[in-house]
Design a protein around this nucleic acid. Structure first.
Lengths: 377, 377
DNA sequence: GCTACGCTTGAATCTCTGG
DNA sequence: TCCAGAGATTCAAGCGTAG
């Protein structure tokens, strides 16, 4: 199960949880154990002119990064840097772990290619549509009004956390889409120094991290941010009852992030958990419903439109009455099999397909299962 | 000024203008002269990697893209293919020429990387936000509701055409942004065979090409589409008074495209159809209110008469406190579902039903939604 | 002629568990 | 590692038909 590598699957030492580790990103990641982190959120630098943000995987500093650099050569260096930290990121992730990466057209295509080349499995690309983007002052292009995020699993076999039910319920009962609308981080939320200047050039809005963490983590999960900056990931993680580890080189950012996070008041545990999914509920076979006496053997079941009917047997299977059954192959089986058979469909969820007759009309048999789950009966 | 290569800068022979050349994309491009084309629009294979069949919840089958032309052995093979046609594309482009490429997360990152590596200069990435995307039927991911386009100049020194003023004037006098809202190509516009099946699995909407050609070409420009398919590029180019050259391998597509384009009537003079305008009022879900920090998780909501109450959770759902919840079946869900549940009603508008406590009394949560719509915040 | 309702469809990397 | 079976899962539009 553990990732390949010298270190075996492990846990982040408790004293490192919810802290910021100072140092070079790749170097510090090397000190973390294999398969120890549930989620990574990364907002990597891409301005090559900053230079100081770049180091090669072998830790040699990249110097001479300036305007005269050949474009292709600078892409090559950027890719080496990306593959360096992404390789460590993948090692540190648990088998079912996942990563979020954010960028703009300057770097996101290179990041996406590196992710795929290293074996990450793309789940979605997400567009953060900005409600208040900076205009294009020179009038030579379209207003750059979005950034792109990539959500990718550690590998194709990973089964990453996705709180589908919670996302849908919080989104007017329709599926959450890949286009997300958020304003830029401005106003009170934007950290500023004593001089009134913004502390970090690319501080991300907490709303963005809120959605990411609610959608793809569980309370108590460990979230690593290798480019911690002023700690938006840590602040939101703390608020939502997730653990964080921040990696950051710049002391000034660490000071600002530490102060910021210490001010965060976590929400109560019960409010931090995503709405449970039906998939997570314990399995209840239909014969348990029959055994509990909730549906008596011999009862007739009907589909919602009363087009099809079946009879409940004492063992929890269904039988098709002969007048309905002439044309179908299967005439006895599970609620699912018989539901599929009468419709001549590939598959069928018998729990929602079949109903019992009541005084107030048809009632799906799923209500009995819910009752059993609720009462432990 | 001319591009490097054996052939010198030239013109497309008049007899090839506004025609479809049948054959392999790269081989056919090799026959075209250097520096002869103003714009390229390319919708290359996406290299989707589909598993088995996919069915909708109603058991109907999804007609996926399983064509041979979309199959590639590996990323390496796909990249070689991409670099092959992009190299020719760059040679054919005039010095101030530009290219548009469209793709999804399966291929767009690789295309973007290849573009950059070959010396194209990125101008914008553009998001086609779909108003009516196909849902995620298994509930495993975010609805894939967009595709990405890259607009890139031949090189950094190019001065590509951009009709900034026209774009702004057609967009209610604000700059055109990088997020574009269009529906899928369906209905009458979608080409279908005699059997009623779609002629091409990935026909693009004319509105998309309309905007691209109006924004980045002049009347009389030559537009090359190396993956012509059923000829959307040609149809829109003809309508808008631009020349096109289509490259296509499949005879059936050529037949369909030829018939389609011959039916197109060019617009009179410079009358451009009005641009589709942005969506009037975007949907604002309740979780966006929570993410924005306007309602903190744990906050109690009340109905106008304080008869019912519910607690806000971090995912934007509501939970019913146990003293209220004994008699109802649902105990967590959307603002609408829980509003209906407490009243034992069929449906409920949670936005107007639920209120927060303020110094001045109860305030409906709808006011937060209005605030987001007004300020984007 | 109009409305209501049902059926169809769209570039999709679309399950999980136990034997 | 593979297979079988349980069981979870959809949104917006266009079009045709019934009333």
């Amino acid at each position: 199960m553990a990732a390949k590598g010298k270190r075996s699957a492990g846990r982040i030492p408790a004293e490192q949880l919810d802290t910021i580790l100072q140092g070079d990103c790749i170097e510090t990641m090397r000190t973390l154990p294999d398969a120890s982190v549930d989620l990574i959120f990364a907002d990597p630098p891409y301005n090559l002119q900053l230079g100081g943000d770049l180091s090669r995987p072998d830790n040699s500093r990249v110097d001479g990064v300036d305007n005269d650099w050949d474009q292709f050569e600078s892409f090559k260096v950027y890719d080496e840097f990306s593959r360096g930290w992404l390789t460590e990121a993948r090692r540190i992730l648990k088998p079912d772990g996942a990563i979020w990466v954010i960028g703009s057209y300057h770097n996101i295509f290179r990041l996406g290619t590196s992710l795929q080349d290293l074996g990450f499995w793309m789940l979605n690309d997400i567009i953060w549509v900005k409600t208040n983007p900076m205009p294009n002052f020179r009038g030579t292009r379209f207003t750059n009004a979005h950034e792109t995020l990539i959500w990718a699993a550690r590998d194709q076999k990973s089964r990453p956390t996705f709180n589908y039910t919670a996302m849908k319920a919080g989104n007017e009962d329709v599926q959450m889409r890949s286009d997300w609308l958020f304003p830029l981080c401005t106003g009170e939320e934007r950290l500023k120094g004593e001089d009134g200047k913004k502390t970090h050039p690319t501080q991300k809005p907490e709303a963005l991290l809120h959605r990411i963490l609610m959608a793809t983590t569980q309370p108590g999960d460990v979230v690593l941010d290798p480019f911690f900056g002023t700690g938006t990931t840590g602040a939101v993680a703390k608020m939502l009852g997730r653990h964080f580890i921040g990696l950051e080189r710049d002391e000034a950012y660490i000071v600002a992030a530490t102060a910021r996070i210490s001010d965060v008041r976590p929400v109560e545990k019960r409010d931090a958990a995503p709405m449970p999914s039906p998939r997570a509920a314990p399995r209840v076979p239909f014969n348990q419903v029959v055994e509990a006496g909730m549906v008596r053997p011999g009862t007739m079941l009907y589909c919602a439109k009363r087009k099809y009917a079946a009879r409940v047997k004492a063992d929890g299977t269904l039988a098709i009455p002969s007048k309905f059954g002439k044309s179908v192959e299967v005439d006895q089986g599970s609620i699912h099999k018989i539901g599929a058979a009468v419709q001549k469909a590939q598959a069928c969820n018998g729990w929602t397909f079949w109903h019992v007759e009541t005084d107030t009309g048809l009632k799906p048999i799923d209500t009995f299962r819910e009752q059993i789950r609720r009462n432990g009966k």
